[in-house]
């Protein structure tokens, strides 16, 4: 049981590829892959990546075409490429305002969502307390009622609280859909963290909350990263609540705002695709931020604390 080789690797950029060190496995007796296996592995991943990327790539290509060129019976990769659509979206519409609103809402939802779901997830993973099962059920049942049917009652509730057309109202609504999911997910991850770590913490005189904060959370970074990204993307791309609750266009989020490019009879696909690309960029950036935490070896995390 070696501890030395992982010390200090956590939390530095570039951990990603070292955290599952090939070397460590190799010492376990597995030789390097054969060339054929390696080829098959890469081929599979390349094909999967292509399928994943193709529609997005097409989105980018379309955004570079003239405003109406998407509507054509002949399929072309490039067609008079320019950044005109981007210029119009950024210059002539309220896009920057929507972007700011979305970032604010998504950031709040992510931070609050991860904190709330981690604490709840930890509590239901570690403690057996009266009401434990009903909380598990409650979190589950919350997911089951179709959102489309919830919009009107939640609207009325927020209206009663004076939260219509207010960012906190939207954030709270998003939390109701992200937290139950994330709390369940976090419980799953916490379940994989050995309970002996908690006991060790207790032996060291930490409170249950201290154990959670100082020992367990660092060990659960992959789960936290998934929860964070899930919360962010949910808030980032949600349409139904945002459309209903944000009644003034100074409060529109991106998902609502770019609906303006879809008229009654005609959609401005050039503008729509350009803004979609612009919307995907921050989401991808957030993923880059969290993804290094996706791969954090268990022992590595433990040694840090």
């Amino acid at each position: 049981m070696s501890t030395s080789d992982t010390v200090g690797t956590v939390g530095t950029a570039g951990t990603v590829d070292r955290a599952i060190p090939g070397g460590r496995r190799a010492t376990g007796g597995r030789g390097p892959r054969s060339a054929g296996a390696s080829l098959a592995l890469h081929a599979t991943l390349v094909v999967a990546s292509l399928v994943a990327v193709f529609p997005v790539a097409w989105l980018v290509l379309t955004s570079l075409k003239p405003r109406d060129a998407w509507q054509s019976t002949t399929v072309r990769l490039f067609d008079d490429p320019s950044l005109a659509n981007y210029a119009q979206v950024l210059g002539d519409t309220a896009f920057p305002r929507w972007l700011f609103n979305s970032l604010l809402v998504a950031a709040l939802t992510t931070v609050l969502g991860v904190v709330l779901s981690a604490t709840t997830g930890y509590a239901v993973s570690r403690f057996r307390f009266p009401g434990f099962r009903s909380i598990m059920w409650m979190l589950l049942v919350t997911q089951m009622f179709p959102v489309a049917i919830l919009i009107v009652p939640i609207y009325n509730l927020l209206a009663g609280l004076g939260l219509i057309n207010q960012f906190p109202g939207l954030v709270i609504a998003y939390l109701t859909s992200t937290v139950p999911f994330c709390a369940w997910m976090m419980k799953g991850y916490f379940d994989t963290v050995p309970v002996e770590i908690d006991e060790a913490g207790r032996v060291d005189g930490l409170t249950p909350f201290g154990t959670f904060w100082r020992l367990i959370l660092p060990l659960s970074r992959p789960g936290l990263a998934v929860a964070a990204f899930y919360s962010f993307i949910t808030a980032w791309a949600e349409v139904a609540y945002a459309t209903a609750f944000m009644t003034g266009d100074d409060k529109y989020t991106l998902a609502v705002g770019i609906g303006q490019f879809v008229g009654q009879h005609k959609a401005e696909w050039g503008l729509l695709t350009a803004s979609s690309v612009l919307i995907a960029v921050p989401a991808a950036a957030v993923f880059l931020l969290v993804q290094r935490h996706l791969v954090t070896g268990l022992t590595a995390g433990a040694t840090k604390s």
Binding site: V53, F229, S276, A284, Q291
Partner: peptide
């Protein structure tokens, strides 16, 4: 690979 494979998630679902 991980970045590319996650891309579908990063694009808002209604756009996809």
């Amino acid at each position: 690979y991980r970045m590319l494979l996650v891309l579908p998630w990063a694009v808002p679902a209604f756009v996809s």
